[in-house]
Each structure stands twice: as C-alpha cells, then as structure tokens.
Amino acid sequence: MPRHNFSAKVKRQAHERSGGHCEAVGEVYGLPPGQRCNAALAGKRVEIDHYPIPATDEGSDVLENAVACCTKCHGHKTATYDVPMQAKGKRVATRHLGISQPGTLPGARIKYSRARGVWVDRATGQIVEAPQQ
C-alpha cells in the first residue's frame, strides 16, 4: 500500500499548532481516556503522526490528521495500534483472495498441528483423520 507522507509545510504547521508540547491524546497513545500527554518537545525529536486516518489511506496527509508527538507516545501507538492493524488488514486481504495458511484447507474446520503431528478439528480440538485431497 502506498504511504501518504506529510509535506514539510504540514509538518511545520503541526509543530507550530502544538505550542511545543506533545499533542497525543487518549488510550491509543498509552494515556488515560481523554488525557493529553503535553510533554515538552523543545530540543527533542518531534514526530508527526497520522491520526485518526492511517498513512496508507488517501487524504491522510493533511494538517487535520497530523499529530505532533513525543517519541514515547508515537512509539506506543506504532507498536500497539498501527502494526497490529496493518497485520490484520493483510490477513483480511489474504483471506479475501482465498489464500489459506500452510497446513489448512480453505473453508475447512480442520487444521494440521505440526506440534502434535496430527489433524485437529478447530471447533472441538479433537484429533481427526487426515482429509482426502
């Protein structure tokens, strides 16, 4: 997926708007609901985050979607929100194409368990006979 980066102008505007303090707000940044970080950004690395629209979406590169963050808040969001959401998107897209995980049969309830060396019914966890392919 293409990434829509902020222009230098938008980055400057977001930094000016922040008043030199982290704009991260709420749980997505590892804070209590509704709480703003407000960490001083002067003399520190300022990261401009895409939120609430992800960087991969069209129109995400505008000032209204730019959050001037400290590295701690941006790192938390990246690790606990962005990366898992991107992984889920890839899984959904892969499933939509009909591509299955190794050791599974598309649409089947059974899966091959490498650890146990047997086929297992996903719903019950019971060992079943190898499927006819």
Results as ranks from 00 to 15, higher is better:
A24R: 03
A115H: 04
N38A: 03
P52A: 05
K11L: 03
P54F: 02
H76P: 05
D49V: 04
G43V: 03
V62I: 11
S60W: 09
T56P: 07
G103P: 08
F6L: 07
Y112Q: 09
I53F: 10
S18K: 07
D121Y: 06
C37M: 00
A79T: 07
E58T: 07
H4S: 01
A123Q: 14
H15N: 12
V10T: 15
H15M: 13
Q126L: 14
P32Q: 01
K111S: 15
I127Y: 02
I53C: 13
V67Y: 07
E27R: 09
A66L: 00
G20V: 05
H76I: 13
G43I: 06
T94Y: 11
A24M: 05
M85C: 15
C37A: 02
I99C: 09
T71R: 15
A8D: 15
T80F: 14
L105Q: 14
K88I: 14
R12G: 10
R17F: 06
V28L: 12
T71P: 06
P52D: 00
C70H: 04
T124G: 01
V92D: 15
P131C: 08
D49T: 05
S100A: 12
Q126D: 15
R36E: 05
E64F: 11
D49G: 01
Y29C: 00
A14R: 03
E27F: 12
H50P: 03
Y112C: 03
E129H: 10
H76L: 12
K77Q: 08
S100P: 09
V83K: 13
A68M: 01
C69V: 09
D121G: 02
A108I: 08
L97C: 12
A14T: 08
A8F: 08
H96Y: 11
K72T: 13
V92A: 06
L63W: 08
Y112L: 09
A14K: 10
A93S: 13
G59T: 11
G98Q: 04
C73D: 09
I110G: 11
T124Q: 09
H76D: 02
H74V: 03
G59Y: 01
I53K: 13
G59A: 02
T124W: 05
G125W: 05
P2A: 11
Y29Q: 01
H50G: 08
G59H: 04
C70L: 00
E64Y: 04
Y81G: 05
A40P: 07
G26E: 13
E129A: 14
K90I: 11
P54K: 05
G89P: 08
L31N: 07
Q133A: 12
A55F: 08
